[in-house]
Amino acid sequence: MKTGMRKERIDRGIKVRSDSIYALSSWREISYLMAPRALLVGGFLLAPLILYFFPYWQKVLLIVCIYALLSMAFDFLANYVGLVCLGGSFFVGVGGYGAALLNKYLHFSPFLSIPVAALGGAAFCTFFLLPCLPLRGVYFAIITLMYPLMMTRIIEAFELFGGTNGMMDISGFANPWVEQYFLIISTLVFLFALRRLAVEDIGLVIKGIKDNDQSVRASGINITVVKAQALFYASFLGCFAGAYLAHTYMWAGLSMFALDFSIIPIAATVVGGGGSLLGAVVGAILLVPLSEALRAFGPLRIVSYSLILTVVIVIKGEGLLNYLSRKYSQFERWVEI
């Protein structure tokens, strides 16, 4: 701290989409805006090539994408719609079993079964969560937590779809490059599409429900329909992730309803910072490799993992991305008092 001086922060006067007017005057401003996006897109696209000699880490990259999709779904529901959803594993399981069934009995190729299972699974999940939509906060969270547990028990009890063994011999991807880029490009497309949706008029309505649902009703809008629509988008992402997993593991089983798919996305959203969707993705990029790297600690892995999480939450409670983007969009300079 310098004496007689104080730090002044000024917002950079650039706004990308200032209500359908694009006001960029120089290459410097354009590159300033594009740099973070280019870094993200470029990084994702180049990662499989960079990791060419580390096939293990190529697999980790795919898991990063899976958790990025689930974290986006969680962030979208929690910070845009106002529904805290612990049903990540419900989405993954439904999508996974859906793709496996389509592949096994109807012989759909992965490129057909994944989108069909994602759409069908999203419709299935939305339908079953429909009665819970009037619930808010922790009540919705509890119900969504119950669904995957319930599905596991039903499949076990009735020996459905291979029972505890799961469904084997699901066809995989023929080409490992196609396998990787299919998921990476889909993840990027969904990220930008969802971010775009959030600033469109329908996105405002969705955000309005979180802010003040009674006001939305008083505007003549059926909030149950809008919530169901938002839930469909979120569960689509989750089911897509699940369907992809079924084809990449060439197997669908009970562990697709595992709690990890519900819990880790929350941690990723908290670490990366909620409310921007990008933060959730950044959180997944940080957490998934971290938890892999910590495998060296053996039984202490979960302890060190929790320790790191706790430290991040305490020090940067707003989330890393929210902090970084604030720093990025401000000048700082020392001025005399």
Partner: peptide
């Protein structure tokens, strides 16, 4: 019952 996190004019888009 405003939408607190939105600018005033965006409140009317809904």
């Amino acid at each position: 019952r405003p939408y607190s996190s939105m600018p005033a004019y965006k409140n009317l888009i809904i």
